[in-house]
Design a binder for these strands. Structure first.
Lengths: 243, 243
DNA sequence: CGGCAGCTTGACTACGGTCAATGACCGTGG
DNA sequence: CCACGGTCATTGACCGTAGTCAAGCTGCCG
């Protein structure tokens, strides 16, 4: 199968990612074993599954979610290009959540067994991997804080601010607006709100002149007000390593 | 300062922790630089702080929490003996949450700068550290699911089931009851409920004959019903590495 | 043009929050 | 030894945010 050489990776040169050393690049070229395409709505990794592969999202968007027996669903967070997928399966043996594509996705594939090689031979890459896990841990803590302490308006503002921040960092969007690949239903599942109340809340933010959101296009008219509501500093994220 | 030699660690022999190889033991003896005592209510690490130390909780209990500007507080999770503290400070430079002692705590201290040595020289220990981060990540996902999807009764049942499970795994408790070092107020902050409603909910569980909880002592009368309410399998946790 | 997915709005309900008072237990000092 | 104050748990009355049910609406694709 033909696939993108890491040397020509479309993601890595973007300003939000840390550059590779030549040694890292060489290692990652060997680490990457191929690519995989997942259609919109498709399952990348399923809860309970042991996967022989780990992934990095190369293009497209998705959700990580936990499904309860009775059908309730919680979106843990959203998956963006550059995100590493499957650390749990790699280390703990089995996925504890499901990753589903919200848009068509293109993934770089790695062999799970090579993970130990990475720790043994490339402490710099192992460090980066742990750094990614620590940042993710912090983000989940922020999510818990949002679900536990903030009301519906603050919740929606927080989620849209975080998503917008990330999309802008990725270089998507044309200055005033970004393409928003998630549905209100997914936002509701991420915030523990009903779809109906999520919609009402978005309507309120629209009415306040803070944003516009129609047909997969999100425009932030008053970023300062959005971030204030979200309880976030209006700063750009730190650059992150890419796996 | 006099402190416990890792060879005589009171924690490591317990069944919930994986054993050390002789090499690991030797390394950890060098990695550990001392101990620290924190009184009840004391701050182990403060949000925003850059700490020169990392810790493993040797004895006592605490909370990790995020404080908002307006005084709201979210307990992210609880800290038990054997937990590693400060990975964020170690990797990301600055703590994003506060760790506070709910009981007097005794901590093993490590030097932050040695973390890179660990990755370079001990890939097995680096792997364990990442494993710990991945397990924590999964646990936070479960917490998000609880806060987002479950009602107050399920929330309280989940938290008490998880805490009980952990205390029993640590070998605390005398078969029927465990010492519960947290206050209802902290449980409320962990679940995003008001203290009043948390209390009412505990009262309901008591009325159902599922548990007793008085004066720091928790007795589970009907574990099966508690775990069913919590949406958890009634299994013991996997053994975990100790840092 | 029909069907479907996703968004929007209205009416009613209920879970959990808030405010406030009381109670139980414990350590301290007179 | 008991009175006091503090912390934490408990209970009652009332209120408000968000959930539920249900009906339309919009835009898109076949």
């Amino acid at each position: 199968m033909q696939f993108t050489d890491c040397a020509a990776c479309p993601l890595r040169p973007r300003p939000m990612f840390l550059p590779f050393t030549p040694e890292e690049l060489a290692f990652m070229r060997g680490f990457k074993t191929g690519e995989r395409l997942v259609p919109r709505g498709g399952i990348v990794l399923a809860q309970g599954e042991t996967s022989p592969h780990l992934y990095t999202a190369l293009d497209g968007f998705g959700t990580r979610s936990i499904l309860l027996e009775d059908g309730r669903r919680q979106v843990i967070n959203f998956v963006f290009p550059g995100d590493f997928i499957g650390l749990q399966a790699g280390l703990m043996g089995e996925m504890r959540h499901t990753i589903q594509a919200s848009t068509p996705m293109r993934l770089c594939t790695f062999r799970r067994e090579e993970l130990w090689t990475l720790f043994r031979d490339r402490p710099d890459r192992a460090y980066d991997l742990t750094w990614i896990a620590a940042v993710e841990e912090h983000f989940l803590g922020e999510t818990i804080t949002t679900l536990g302490q903030r009301d519906a308006t603050e919740k929606v503002a927080w989620a849209l601010a975080r998503i917008w921040q990330r999309l802008v960092a990725l270089g998507l969007g044309d200055g005033s607006a970004v393409p928003l690949p998630f549905r209100q239903h997914e936002l509701a599942d991420a915030l523990g709100l009903s779809p109906v109340h999520t919609n009402r809340t978005v309507t309120v933010l629209r009415g306040l002149g803070i944003l516009r959101w129609t047909r997969g296009r999100l425009e932030i008219l008053a970023p300062a007000r959005l971030f204030a509501l979200a309880g976030l500093p209006q700063a750009h994220e730190e650059r992150r390593p890419l796996m």
